[in-house]
Simulated scan of single mutants.
Amino acid sequence: MQQLTFKPKAFLFDLNGTMINDMEYHTMAWHSIMNDDLGADLSYDSVKKEMYGKNHEVLERVFGKDKFSAEEIERLSIDKEKRYQAGYFPHLALIDGLDHFLERAKQANILMAIGSAAIPFNIDFVVDGLNIRHYLDAIVSADDVKISKPDAETFIKASQLLNINPKDCVVFEDAPKGVESAGHAGMKCIVLTTTHTIEEFDDYPNVLDFITDYNAPILNTLF
Protein backbone atom coordinates (compact mmCIF):
# COMPACT_ATOMS: atom_id res chain seq x y z
CA MET A 1 0.00 0.00 0.00
CA GLN A 2 1.01 3.60 -0.55
CA GLN A 3 1.17 6.51 1.87
CA LEU A 4 -1.18 9.45 1.41
CA THR A 5 1.12 12.40 0.68
CA PHE A 6 -1.45 14.94 -0.54
CA LYS A 7 -4.80 16.41 0.36
CA PRO A 8 -7.34 15.36 -2.27
CA LYS A 9 -9.53 17.92 -3.97
CA ALA A 10 -12.15 15.38 -5.04
CA PHE A 11 -13.61 12.05 -3.96
CA LEU A 12 -14.84 9.71 -6.69
CA PHE A 13 -17.13 6.91 -5.57
CA ASP A 14 -18.04 3.70 -7.26
CA LEU A 15 -21.63 2.96 -6.30
CA ASN A 16 -22.46 -0.72 -5.80
CA GLY A 17 -20.48 -2.27 -2.99
CA THR A 18 -18.85 1.09 -2.25
CA MET A 19 -21.59 3.52 -1.22
CA ILE A 20 -24.15 0.79 -0.59
CA ASN A 21 -23.57 -2.86 0.22
CA ASP A 22 -25.81 -4.37 -2.44
CA MET A 23 -23.67 -6.60 -4.66
CA GLU A 24 -25.31 -9.74 -3.28
CA TYR A 25 -28.64 -8.56 -4.71
CA HIS A 26 -27.14 -7.86 -8.14
CA THR A 27 -25.62 -11.33 -8.15
CA MET A 28 -28.88 -12.96 -7.07
CA ALA A 29 -30.77 -11.12 -9.82
CA TRP A 30 -28.30 -12.19 -12.51
CA HIS A 31 -28.20 -15.73 -11.11
CA SER A 32 -31.98 -15.91 -11.45
CA ILE A 33 -31.96 -14.51 -15.00
CA MET A 34 -29.12 -16.73 -16.21
CA ASN A 35 -30.33 -19.96 -14.66
CA ASP A 36 -34.12 -19.73 -14.40
CA ASP A 37 -34.72 -17.77 -17.60
CA LEU A 38 -31.74 -18.69 -19.78
CA GLY A 39 -30.92 -22.21 -18.54
CA ALA A 40 -27.22 -21.56 -17.97
CA ASP A 41 -26.84 -23.79 -14.87
CA LEU A 42 -24.20 -21.55 -13.28
CA SER A 43 -23.21 -21.52 -9.63
CA TYR A 44 -23.64 -18.40 -7.53
CA ASP A 45 -19.85 -18.00 -7.33
CA SER A 46 -19.50 -18.30 -11.10
CA VAL A 47 -22.02 -15.52 -11.60
CA LYS A 48 -20.36 -13.37 -8.92
CA LYS A 49 -17.07 -13.42 -10.85
CA GLU A 50 -18.78 -11.70 -13.79
CA MET A 51 -20.20 -8.83 -11.71
CA TYR A 52 -18.41 -5.94 -13.40
CA GLY A 53 -18.98 -3.74 -16.44
CA LYS A 54 -22.14 -2.97 -18.35
CA ASN A 55 -25.04 -5.40 -18.49
CA HIS A 56 -24.46 -6.30 -22.12
CA GLU A 57 -20.80 -7.03 -21.29
CA VAL A 58 -21.86 -9.40 -18.51
CA LEU A 59 -24.17 -11.25 -20.89
CA GLU A 60 -21.53 -11.39 -23.61
CA ARG A 61 -18.87 -12.77 -21.26
CA VAL A 62 -21.19 -15.56 -20.13
CA PHE A 63 -23.08 -16.42 -23.34
CA GLY A 64 -20.94 -15.03 -26.19
CA LYS A 65 -21.33 -11.90 -28.29
CA ASP A 66 -23.83 -13.25 -30.81
CA LYS A 67 -26.23 -14.99 -28.45
CA PHE A 68 -28.75 -12.15 -28.01
CA SER A 69 -30.09 -9.35 -30.16
CA ALA A 70 -29.89 -5.76 -28.95
CA GLU A 71 -33.60 -5.89 -28.12
CA GLU A 72 -33.17 -9.09 -26.10
CA ILE A 73 -30.23 -7.60 -24.18
CA GLU A 74 -32.27 -4.52 -23.35
CA ARG A 75 -35.19 -6.64 -22.15
CA LEU A 76 -32.97 -8.88 -20.04
CA SER A 77 -31.17 -5.88 -18.57
CA ILE A 78 -34.38 -4.16 -17.53
CA ASP A 79 -35.73 -7.38 -16.04
CA LYS A 80 -32.52 -7.91 -14.11
CA GLU A 81 -32.58 -4.39 -12.68
CA LYS A 82 -36.21 -4.69 -11.63
CA ARG A 83 -35.42 -7.93 -9.79
CA TYR A 84 -32.39 -6.31 -8.15
CA GLN A 85 -34.34 -3.26 -6.99
CA ALA A 86 -37.23 -5.34 -5.67
CA GLY A 87 -34.84 -7.51 -3.67
CA TYR A 88 -32.63 -4.72 -2.35
CA PHE A 89 -35.19 -1.98 -1.66
CA PRO A 90 -36.08 -3.17 1.87
CA HIS A 91 -32.35 -3.00 2.73
CA LEU A 92 -31.47 0.27 0.93
CA ALA A 93 -28.94 2.12 3.11
CA LEU A 94 -25.58 3.86 2.90
CA ILE A 95 -22.60 1.94 4.18
CA ASP A 96 -22.06 2.80 7.85
CA GLY A 97 -20.48 6.21 8.38
CA LEU A 98 -20.87 7.41 4.80
CA ASP A 99 -23.60 9.91 5.65
CA HIS A 100 -21.25 11.75 8.03
CA PHE A 101 -18.32 11.40 5.62
CA LEU A 102 -20.29 13.01 2.78
CA GLU A 103 -21.32 15.89 5.02
CA ARG A 104 -17.78 16.39 6.25
CA ALA A 105 -16.44 16.44 2.69
CA LYS A 106 -19.12 18.92 1.65
CA GLN A 107 -18.21 21.23 4.52
CA ALA A 108 -14.53 20.94 3.53
CA ASN A 109 -15.37 21.97 -0.06
CA ILE A 110 -14.13 18.67 -1.47
CA LEU A 111 -15.91 17.89 -4.72
CA MET A 112 -17.64 14.53 -5.05
CA ALA A 113 -18.81 12.37 -7.93
CA ILE A 114 -20.09 8.91 -8.68
CA GLY A 115 -18.23 6.92 -11.32
CA SER A 116 -20.16 3.70 -11.84
CA ALA A 117 -20.91 1.03 -14.40
CA ALA A 118 -24.52 1.15 -13.21
CA ILE A 119 -27.21 2.49 -15.51
CA PRO A 120 -29.01 5.76 -14.59
CA PHE A 121 -32.12 3.77 -13.58
CA ASN A 122 -30.17 2.18 -10.73
CA ILE A 123 -28.12 5.23 -9.82
CA ASP A 124 -31.28 7.31 -9.47
CA PHE A 125 -32.84 4.51 -7.39
CA VAL A 126 -29.99 4.86 -4.88
CA VAL A 127 -29.21 8.59 -5.02
CA ASP A 128 -32.81 9.73 -4.73
CA GLY A 129 -33.89 6.85 -2.49
CA LEU A 130 -31.24 7.90 0.02
CA ASN A 131 -31.51 11.65 -0.64
CA ILE A 132 -27.80 12.24 -1.33
CA ARG A 133 -27.94 14.01 -4.71
CA HIS A 134 -27.10 17.37 -3.10
CA TYR A 135 -23.67 16.03 -2.14
CA LEU A 136 -22.75 15.12 -5.71
CA ASP A 137 -21.15 17.48 -8.20
CA ALA A 138 -21.16 14.96 -11.08
CA ILE A 139 -22.38 11.48 -11.98
CA VAL A 140 -20.84 9.21 -14.62
CA SER A 141 -22.96 6.16 -15.45
CA ALA A 142 -22.69 3.26 -17.86
CA ASP A 143 -24.50 5.38 -20.45
CA ASP A 144 -21.80 8.07 -20.31
CA VAL A 145 -18.80 5.98 -21.39
CA LYS A 146 -17.84 3.91 -24.40
CA ILE A 147 -15.64 1.48 -22.47
CA SER A 148 -16.41 0.47 -18.91
CA LYS A 149 -14.02 -0.43 -16.09
CA PRO A 150 -11.22 -1.52 -15.97
CA ASP A 151 -10.72 1.12 -18.67
CA ALA A 152 -9.89 4.56 -17.22
CA GLU A 153 -12.72 6.39 -19.01
CA THR A 154 -15.23 6.38 -16.13
CA PHE A 155 -12.93 8.06 -13.61
CA ILE A 156 -11.20 10.32 -16.14
CA LYS A 157 -14.58 11.64 -17.24
CA ALA A 158 -15.62 12.21 -13.62
CA SER A 159 -12.46 14.22 -12.93
CA GLN A 160 -13.02 16.24 -16.11
CA LEU A 161 -16.58 17.07 -15.09
CA LEU A 162 -15.23 18.30 -11.75
CA ASN A 163 -12.35 20.13 -13.46
CA ILE A 164 -9.93 18.40 -11.10
CA ASN A 165 -6.57 16.88 -12.06
CA PRO A 166 -6.69 13.06 -11.75
CA LYS A 167 -3.74 13.08 -9.37
CA ASP A 168 -5.80 15.21 -6.96
CA CYS A 169 -8.62 12.65 -6.77
CA VAL A 170 -9.09 9.75 -4.39
CA VAL A 171 -11.29 6.91 -5.61
CA PHE A 172 -13.38 4.69 -3.36
CA GLU A 173 -13.89 1.21 -4.83
CA ASP A 174 -14.79 -2.31 -3.81
CA ALA A 175 -13.73 -4.34 -6.85
CA PRO A 176 -10.34 -5.18 -8.39
CA LYS A 177 -11.52 -4.06 -11.83
CA GLY A 178 -12.51 -0.70 -10.36
CA VAL A 179 -9.14 -0.29 -8.63
CA GLU A 180 -7.47 -1.15 -11.94
CA SER A 181 -9.59 1.51 -13.63
CA ALA A 182 -8.51 4.10 -11.06
CA GLY A 183 -4.89 3.08 -11.59
CA HIS A 184 -5.17 3.55 -15.34
CA ALA A 185 -6.58 7.02 -14.62
CA GLY A 186 -3.59 7.87 -12.43
CA MET A 187 -5.63 7.92 -9.23
CA LYS A 188 -5.04 6.53 -5.75
CA CYS A 189 -7.73 4.28 -4.30
CA ILE A 190 -9.24 3.32 -0.95
CA VAL A 191 -10.88 -0.10 -1.02
CA LEU A 192 -14.08 -1.12 0.74
CA THR A 193 -13.83 -4.77 1.75
CA THR A 194 -17.53 -5.44 1.16
CA THR A 195 -17.29 -7.90 -1.72
CA HIS A 196 -13.66 -8.99 -2.19
CA THR A 197 -10.79 -10.15 0.02
CA ILE A 198 -7.73 -8.01 0.58
CA GLU A 199 -5.60 -10.63 -1.15
CA GLU A 200 -7.46 -10.02 -4.41
CA PHE A 201 -5.90 -6.55 -4.60
CA ASP A 202 -2.27 -7.64 -4.30
CA ASP A 203 -1.48 -6.61 -7.89
CA TYR A 204 -2.69 -3.02 -7.57
CA PRO A 205 -0.03 -0.54 -6.37
CA ASN A 206 -2.45 2.41 -6.26
CA VAL A 207 -4.28 1.12 -3.15
CA LEU A 208 -3.90 3.47 -0.19
CA ASP A 209 -5.73 1.38 2.37
CA PHE A 210 -8.59 -1.04 3.06
CA ILE A 211 -11.64 -0.09 5.12
CA THR A 212 -14.76 -1.93 6.21
CA ASP A 213 -16.86 1.24 6.44
CA TYR A 214 -16.55 5.02 6.53
CA ASN A 215 -15.84 5.20 10.25
CA ALA A 216 -12.25 4.10 9.60
CA PRO A 217 -9.67 6.41 11.25
CA ILE A 218 -7.57 6.52 8.04
CA LEU A 219 -10.24 8.72 6.49
CA ASN A 220 -9.40 11.53 8.89
CA THR A 221 -6.12 12.01 7.03
CA LEU A 222 -7.99 12.97 3.86
CA PHE A 223 -9.11 16.31 5.26
Rank of each mutant, 00 (worst) to 15 (best):
R83V: 10
M28W: 10
K149Y: 10
I73P: 01
F68Q: 12
A158L: 06
E81A: 04
F155P: 04
K7I: 12
F125Q: 05
D128L: 01
Y52G: 04
D22C: 14
N215C: 14
K7M: 06
R104P: 09
E57Q: 15
V171M: 05
G17R: 07
N206L: 07
C169E: 03
F63R: 13
A138G: 07
S77V: 01
M28V: 10
V170P: 04
R75D: 12
L92M: 07
W30R: 02
M51Q: 12
K188Q: 11
S77L: 02
A117I: 11
F63N: 13
I119F: 01
N163G: 14
E60K: 12
A40R: 09
L42K: 11
S77F: 01
L111A: 11
N220V: 04
F6M: 14
H196V: 00
S46L: 08
D213N: 15
T5V: 15
E24P: 02
S148M: 07
K65S: 14
P8M: 05
M1A: 13
L222I: 14
L94C: 07
A29F: 11
V179Q: 03
L92A: 06
A93R: 15
V140D: 05
N131I: 00
L4S: 03
N165L: 12
I190C: 04
I119V: 13
L192N: 04
F201I: 09
K149V: 08
Y52K: 05
T27L: 10
K82D: 14
I132H: 04
S116I: 01
D151P: 05
L208M: 12
E173C: 09
E81F: 05
A142Y: 09
T18L: 00
A70I: 12
A70F: 08
K167N: 12
I20H: 09
P8S: 02
L15E: 02
K7P: 03
D144C: 07
R133D: 00
N16L: 09
Q2R: 15
I119L: 09
K67E: 09
L76R: 08
A175S: 15
H91G: 04
P217Y: 08
A142I: 08
K54E: 01
A158M: 03
E50P: 08
D66C: 06
V170W: 03
D22H: 05
L102M: 08
A70V: 12
M1H: 10
I147K: 15
A216E: 11
A70S: 14
H56P: 00
D137L: 05
L102W: 01
I156D: 02
P205Y: 06
D124E: 12
R75H: 11
K54A: 10
E153I: 05
D151G: 08
D96S: 15
K146R: 11
L192R: 00
Y88R: 11
T194F: 06
S159C: 14
I164R: 00
T18R: 00
L208R: 04
D41K: 13
T193M: 08
N109Q: 13
F11Y: 15
E57C: 12
A118S: 15
V145D: 03
V47N: 10
